[in-house]
Design a binder for these strands. Structure first.
Length: 733
DNA sequence: CCAGGACACGTTTTT
DNA sequence: CGTGTCCTGG
């Protein structure tokens, strides 16, 4: 076997990682260091050089996109090496995808019905609201969203309702009760939410030693991408699976851990080498993406974080242009500046799609969009609603789910009256009550109530018509005569959309909505046509599982060459020659919600690091001195992160063009300085102060200038307070 | 059932 | 300020 294909074009560190001997490895892969490449080559190396069985390898990712990419690149590499190996023998997938696969295979051991259904967060919330009704809990006092958040957080930590300690805290008590009931309802209905998939898979290991034994023997090599994003359950699941005999290769970057707020534990990557000992640590620090200046800036910013595993990106390429910093007067000025720079980029013959505008929060996109629109520059916003999250698609999928299993309560509830067929709240509520008290599905309860002649003729007829329709479709599409071939998936979808009236219903919605929704439904049919079966399970079931686990990209790839707009979070993993970081202001980035928590600030700083390292050639950082957000104007200071960038790789932009500014506006001093003090106040951000009435506190933010400026202080006793500097009479302490 | 108005809410998002 | 949701009156 010619090894050179697997090792050529790799740098020494990459090579070391690819050829690492059997054992645990922690590969700290900096941004743009060729991480996926290493992962893919390592797998190929193990199979083709070390002669490991593809069957003994598991590769885990976080997103479907990453899994798809890895499969694709593996395939490509195997083709090149002339030893095609069916990549289906290797388990490549997301944590959720693989866990789901296990639960499907061992549904009985996992205490699930064979046709268990996955709940998306929408379904989950609806179900929680039903729990509220059943338990007579006040939605205003404890918002259902909060309960949803609570439940998911518990599950991410591997805790079930029964594990939550008894307490007198009314919040915890209520949440525990909701969680418990929700758990019971899910179990009864054979439904599992996203977090449950992982939790069940973990419990499957713990409860069924023979299964664990089997998989431990099988998967001797487990590779995990984006390890810094693992949550507690995922980590536990891996640890149990690996046991004492399997080897884990963890690839990740602690400096790019930006999902702590949704349960990711940065500690997991920090303690990996202790928990999986002995462990070889390999650092991939050579960067192939960005210029020297950009890397220097990124390194300097992230150096301010504590407890890092340590890593410094370098390049043997050019220093490149300095980073440009622009202090905009307000968000419109900021947008205008960015658009001008993009126009000049395009005028150099570059592509619009090579440029990206990154921001901390979605609300910022408006001003940018307006400016782009004004100049008629095509743009594309990432991260809108995903395909399978759209209302019309969810409705269509709910019908398919109902065909697959009429006892699917979430689906039943979604479409029983969509399109409207005269089944109102009262009727539905009666069905719910019976379903709950008799412990049966909504479908079964509806049938019972009709038998018992519970409803008036009108309601009864409406329900019966609906149920007949579903049964008929089921008969025609899912269980045709043996002689007949099973209909194709797209035919099933098309027929269902037609016969249920859903397509007509959505098409007739007024305005452009109807058109768009109609098109989306057509796209769903197209997706069904293109759907490929993976095993011999019923195709409808397979499709539904895929739809539940893969939200589908936000939109079909646009062909148009467009400027890319997205949040910093969704930019992770991407790269662009020209990058703008917009709104780099205290309070927005770092966001004010994170500002008084050291861990929060560190995560924001990592986000900044992610942002900077997206840029290949040229990076602009912009901030607005005045920003209108949620109707109120705020005066923000440049982000602390900007001050962490060494001045020798940054250039402040001075505009030749005059900007209309109020006459009172103070021109910034000609020398570029970044001040830590509030203007004329003699106080600093973060400084401890005391107030005659409110006691001690910490300065969070200055707004405005001069004696009428406002200072925001977080007081130990009463929380945040905004005070006018002139009257506050703050004392430094 | 739908339109229109009151009202709440406002960080980041995947599965 | 702008949006999404909920409620009520027609």
């Amino acid at each position: 076997m010619d090894v050179s294909l697997l090792l050529d074009d790799l740098n020494p560190a990459q090579r070391e990682a690819v050829m690492a001997p059997a054992g645990h490895q922690l590969i700290l892969a900096g941004a743009g260091s060729g991480k996926t490449r290493v992962l893919v080559h390592r797998i190929a190396w193990m199979i083709q050089v070390e002669q490991r069985s593809p069957y003994s390898i598991m590769a885990v990712t976080f997103t479907n996109k990453a899994a798809k990419e890895m499969r694709h690149r593996l395939d490509e590499l195997f083709q090149q090496t002339g030893q095609p190996i069916s990549i289906h023998t290797i388990w490549v997938g997301t944590f959720h995808g693989l866990a789901h696969r296990l639960l499907k295979a061992h549904w009985q051991d996992a205490n699930l019905p064979q046709n268990f259904q996955i709940l998306d967060s929408d379904d989950q919330l609806r179900l929680i609201k039903r729990v509220y009704q059943a338990l007579q809990i006040d939605e205003d006092k404890w918002p259902p969203k909060q309960a949803q958040w609570f439940i998911n957080e518990q599950k991410d930590e591997g805790r079930r309702a029964k594990h939550i300690q008894e307490t007198t805290d009314p919040f915890i008590r209520t949440m525990r009760k909701i969680y418990q009931t929700y758990e019971d309802d899910c179990q009864r209905g054979g439904m599992i939410d996203f977090a449950e998939i992982l939790l069940r898979a973990h419990e499957l290991w713990l409860n069924k030693p023979h299964l664990l034994e089997h998989y431990r023997n099988r998967f001797n090599f487990i590779l995990v991408d984006e390890f810094q994003d693992t949550n507690s359950v995922q980590y536990a699941w891996l640890r149990v699976l690996a046991g004492k005999s399997s080897f884990v290769t963890a690839v990740g970057d602690d400096d790019q851990s930006i999902y702590g707020w949704r349960g990711a534990k940065i500690e997991n990557i920090r303690k990996f080498s202790e928990d999986f000992s002995p462990c070889q640590i390999i650092r991939l620090e050579q960067n192939y993406r960005s210029t020297g200046n950009i890397l220097h800036a990124a390194n300097s910013v992230i150096a301010n974080n504590l407890g890092r595993l340590g890593k410094e990106l370098w390049t043997d390429g050019e220093k490149g242009e300095p980073i440009s910093l622009y202090a905009a007067y307000n968000e419109q000025d900021e947008a205008r500046f960015i658009v001008e720079r993009i126009q000049s980029w395009i005028s150099q013959g570059k592509r619009r799609s090579e440029s990206a505008i990154l921001y901390r929060s979605n609300a910022q996109s408006r001003a940018l969009e307006e400016a782009l629109l004004r100049e008629a520059i095509p743009y594309r916003i990432y991260g809108g609603q995903r395909f399978y999250d759209r209302l019309e698609i969810k409705n269509a999928v709910a019908y398919l789910r109902l065909l697959n299993n009429p006892h699917d309560d979430a689906a039943f509830e979604r479409v029983i009256n969509t399109p409207t067929r005269g089944i109102g709240d009262k009727t539905l509520e009666d069905i719910r009550v019976v379903a709950r008290s008799e412990n049966i599905s909504l479908w079964a309860a509806a049938g019972q109530l009709i038998l018992r002649k519970h409803f008036a003729a009108r309601a009864s007829n409406a329900i019966e018509t609906f149920m007949q329709m579903i049964l008929q479709l089921q008969k025609d599409l899912c269980a045709p005569n043996e002689a007949d071939e099973l209909p194709a998936l797209d035919f099933i979808a098309e027929t269902v959309l037609d016969k249920t009236g859903l397509l007509a219903f959505h098409q007739n919605e007024k305005g452009e909505k109807g058109q768009a929704r109609g098109e989306n439904l057509q796209e769903l049919i197209a997706a069904c046509r293109a759907f490929e079966t993976e095993d011999d399970a019923p195709i409808l079931q397979q499709f539904l599982d895929t739809a539940a686990l893969d939200a589908g990209d936000a939109q079909a790839e646009e062909f148009e060459d467009a400027v890319q707009l997205m949040t910093l979070h969704s930019a992770k993993g991407l790269e662009f020659p020209l990058v703008f970081l917009a709104g780099v202001e205290e309070g927005l980035f770092p966001h004010k919600m994170s500002i008084d928590d050291p861990d929060g600030i560190e995560e924001e700083r990592r986000l900044c690091y992610v942002g900077i390292t997206r840029a290949m050639q040229k990076l602009f950082i912009t901030y607005a001195e005045t920003r209108r957000l949620h109707g109120t104007e705020s005066f923000n200071r440049v982000s602390r992160f900007v001050k962490e960038i060494p001045t020798d790789c940054i250039d402040e932009v001075r505009l030749k063009t005059a900007i209309t500014r109020p006459v009172t506006y103070q021109q910034p001093s000609s020398k570029f300085t970044l001040k830590d003090e509030g203007e004329d106040t003699g106080f600093k951000l973060g400084q401890k102060v005391s107030h005659a009435i409110f006691g001690e506190g910490v300065i969070l933010q200055f707004e405005g200038k001069g004696p009428n400026s406002v200072v925001e202080v977080k007081f130990a006793k009463i929380g945040k307070k905004r005070l006018v500097m002139q009257y506050a009479k703050l004392q430094a302490i």
